[in-house]
Design a protein around this nucleic acid. Structure first.
Length: 800
RNA sequence: GGGCGCAUAGCUCAGCGGGAGAGCGCUCGCUUCACACGCGAGAGGUCCGUGGUUCGAUCCCACGUGCGCCCACCA
């Protein structure tokens, strides 16, 4: 064994072995019928592993391995999301680079091309998860567009249709002019931008002066149908009900009163353009105004005389017109946030277009109940309320997208306009029976299929044994911004379709920020590739480091903590070398006799109990911390040093116990650092640690108080220099406990006495305070009394 | 505008009603036969400010200051 642990090669070897031996498979090593199920949040087929995946994967794998060792039948389901707009984007860019376009080659060829691309370049992340040692059941990899999954998606849609929850409506939507599709509010990214705010005078039709409005998009003046003011705005009391003349087009429109107008903004008068602004759309609808359109789906003007102009040009033309007619009051700069497409960063165009919608009220109600009653619990708690609120206020779901890559909506229309929604594809119109059917060209929102992930991967709508066994699952871990897009939708979809929640706990993991606190992003150049970290320090170290910094809020990436993980692996490797060097032919047998043996068993047992409390509440950081200190401070610095002389002597009992203690230590560390622990395990075992038992409660034979006494007394010795610091023999510890009077030889005895006197004074002061004794919890008072007594004894022991 | 959260050692953070902690960094001493990714010893802190509650506050409450994030809206 090399004195320096090198994870390279070792890790890949175990990853291969585990998978080949079928130990990643669902149910491997199970010793009970109890299941523990996690679905990986399916990454985009187009994606590469980023730090968020790595953190998420480390958390999930830690839970899976812990449960597997505890005998559960575990399933960690892998797979990919087809990522409608992202994927289409990638392929479309390639086509453009080749001088063609998706429109030119047509839908069918485009889809073929996309599948081709996927087979060649897509689906890389599962390989990267393997390199992290993630024990997913890779034999069960699913894709949201594979055959069976399409079945699930189509069935879901038809069921919603049958409930009457799917409807078609013309509404104003976020339109991406580049992708030429509607986007949900959640796919829109708001960015701060500087714009010119144009103040324009609209003359009253009766010639009695004018009213000034302010707009950042003068081009949309062409589609104005009204001017609105706040009903209580004294400046405009008399204007309400009058007619004004819209510039350029000369249309007469009314001045209306609406409370949605913000009197303090601009001039306090708002031009109403229902065709190109969401608020105006609502105001227009409520006042029965007509909706005019002057911008097309490509973002270019369609108004007479402006055809084909881009909006900037149209803005300039309108402003020039205003200036010429002396209706331009002023222009000023305005910083405001503008919606952009999260994929291509084009400015979002609010456009009125026909879309398919899904009613949310009845779908959401059972999910809200499940959250209220905590059948599903979000972690941290602060996200729980948010999740409920966003379900309560969930607007109807725009499920259609004007994309090609995705699940084509299963609605067919006959020449008479009857609609048939069915799956498998109908052969005739449900109403008139004609066979002439044309399928809807829109595809479904990507999240529509993601919502089915927990049960579609198990074969739903078929009643498979897997569905029976592994649904509902247990944990889902994901990022905060996905709560409304994905988590909530899985919950209501599961309740609606399968009749049960998909999981009981949702962990919202922290966003991993760059070392400088900025967001990790490729475009900022602040991203760190998790695989680069793995190459540098090993997967175990990366897993440890990420878990160590994980928390309920955003965290900074830390190379230091990864390095700490590498150190821990090396330390473990070396202490194993120490114990194993004379262990040939000796069976691990836990028979703690010497004090330090009883003590380390107690420490291991305490840590095991601690982990068993921390993991159910997903506190990975403290698990990692506890393991670090157990290994370094307790196992290596104390226990190993203490038994060294007996190890050198080849004392079989000591070696057997040390092996057994090491075994337990390895087991505790395995969920966090699987590779190095399995590697060491294999030095003295034929079996595999990954499927071996999680330690049971261990008998120790040492009282907790005695342990504290050992450490305290030993600390006195260390400070005094009475025992050579590194001597590391068991006698030192034994003496420290049974002969505290040795402390009298301490050169710093006076300082120690001083410390004890201070402690005693403090304790006495507290205990003599009547209010304290009356009010404080009884165990605190008792603990104080006990401490005081102990300090008194100690002081006696080191006083002459 | 709504919501959540954070301010503790040079850095990154843990602790959250009764003794101020860890890792890294720093100083000093150790080529001790598991490990220099090591061992031992040590320096370093008005626990953001101001009030309040309490016998007692880094911890609870209020306000202030400074940060961060999520959501909504922005003519």
């Amino acid at each position: 064994m090399d004195p320096r642990y090198d994870p390279h090669g070792v890790e890949e070897r175990w990853q291969k072995t585990w998978e080949e031996e079928g130990l990643y498979k669902a149910g491997a090593g199970a010793r009970s019928d109890e299941t523990f199920v996690i679905c990986v949040p399916p990454p985009n087929v187009t994606g590469e592993l980023h730090m968020g995946h790595a953190l998420n994967g480390s958390m999930q794998d830690c839970l899976i391995r812990w449960h597997r060792m505890r005998g559960f039948d575990t399933l960690w389901q892998p797979g990919y999301d087809h990522a409608g707009i992202s994927t289409q984007n990638v392929v479309e860019k390639q086509l453009i680079a080749e001088g063609t376009s998706r429109q030119e080659i047509g839908r069918e060829a485009f889809l073929e091309r996309t599948w081709e691309w996927l087979d060649k370049t897509g689906r890389t992340i599962m390989g990267q998860f393997r390199r992290l040692g993630s024990s997913l059941d890779y034999s069960r990899e699913r894709f949201t567009m594979d055959e069976g999954y399409v079945e699930s998606v189509m069935t879901y849609f038809v069921r919603l249709w049958e409930q009457g929850w799917i409807y078609r409506a013309n509404r104003i939507v976020n339109w991406c002019p580049y992708h030429q599709t509607a986007l949900s509010d959640l796919e829109v990214e708001h960015v701060e931008m500087d714009d010119a705010l144009t103040y324009a005078r609209y003359p009253f039709a009766d010639g009695s002066g004018s009213i000034t409005i302010a707009t950042v998009r003068p081009a949309t003046i062409l589609a104005d149908v009204a001017v609105a003011v706040h009903p209580d705005d004294p400046r405009y009391k008399d204007a309400i009900g009058k007619q004004v003349v819209v510039p350029v087009v000369g249309r007469r429109v009314p001045v209306i009163a609406d409370a949605r107008v913000e009197p303090d903004f601009g001039s306090g008068a708002l031009k109403i353009t229902p065709g190109h602004d969401p608020t105006d759309f609502e105001i227009g609808r409520d006042h029965g105004l007509e909706t005019l359109t002057v911008i097309g789906p490509d973002g270019r003007m369609t108004a007479p005389g402006f055809e084909g102009l881009d909006q900037k040009e149209a803005d300039d033309r309108v402003v020039a017109w205003l200036k010429e007619h002396d209706q331009l009051e002023k222009r000023e700069s305005l910083r405001h946030s503008v919606g952009t497409c999260e994929r291509c960063h084009s400015r979002i165009e609010p456009l009125v277009s026909p879309q398919w919608w899904c009613r949310m009220d009845e779908l959401a109600a059972p999910a809200i109940a499940a959250l209220e009653t905590r059948k599903v619990q979000y972690h941290p708690e602060s996200q729980h309320r948010f999740a409920i609120d966003s379900l309560v206020s969930a607007p109807d779901w725009c499920v259609s997208r004007q994309l090609w890559w995705g699940h084509q909506i299963p609605i067919w229309t006959c020449p008479d306009g009857h609609r048939t929604c069915a799956w498998p594809p109908p052969t005739s119109c449900a109403e008139c029976g004609t066979g002439e059917l044309i399928r809807e060209t829109d595809v479904l929102d990507t999240w529509f299929s993601s919502a089915l992930w927990p049960f579609a991967t198990l074969g739903w709508p078929a009643e498979t044994p897997e569905l029976e066994r592994y649904y509902p699952g247990n944990v889902n871990t994901t990022a905060r911004e996905i709560i409304r897009l994905w988590e909530n939708r899985m919950i209501f979809s599961g309740l609606f379709l399968v009749g049960d929640i998909p999981f009981t706990d949702v962990i919202i993991n922290s966003t991993v920020l760059a070392v400088d606190g900025r967001r990790m992003s490729k475009s900022l150049g602040t991203g760190i590739d998790p695989l680069e970290a793995v190459d540098r320090h090993g997967a175990d170290a990366v897993r440890y480091g990420l878990l160590r910094i994980s928390s309920t809020q955003d965290v900074r990436f830390s190379w230091d903590k990864i390095a700490e993980g590498a150190k821990l692996a090396n330390k473990l490797w070396n202490v194993a070398r120490l114990i194993l060097q004379k262990a040939e032919g000796i069976e691990p047998t836990l028979r703690p006799s010497a004090l330090e043996e009883q003590w380390i068993v107690r420490r291991i047992e305490d840590t095991r109990a601690e982990i068993d409390e921390l993991l159910p509440v997903f506190d990975f950081a403290h698990v990692a911390d506890a393991l670090y200190h157990l290994t370094f401070d307790d196992f290596c610095d104390w226990y190993a040093e203490a038994i060294k002389p007996r190890l050198y002597d080849g004392d079989e009992a000591a070696i057997a116990t040390a092996l057994a203690a090491l075994e337990h230590l390895l087991a505790l560390l395995h969920p966090v650092m699987p590779h190095v622990t399995e590697e060491i395990w294999s030095q003295f075992h034929e079996t595999r640690l990954i499927v071996s038992s999680w330690p049971e409660e261990l008998p120790t034979g040492v009282e907790a108080d005695a342990l504290a006494r050992v450490q305290e007394a030993a600390a006195i010795f260390r400070r005094s220099g009475v025992a050579p610091a590194l001597e590391g023999n068991e006698k030192r510890i034994f003496d420290a406990v049974v002969k505290p009077e040795r402390a009298k030889a301490n050169g710093d005895a006076e300082a120690e006495r001083e410390r004890l006197r201070k402690e005693i004074a403090r304790g006495e002061a507290m205990l003599s305070n009547e209010r304290f004794v009356q009010n404080a919890a009884t165990d605190i008072v008792a603990a104080e009394r006990e401490k005081l007594e102990r300090y008194r004894r100690e002081l006696d022991a080191i006083s002459d």
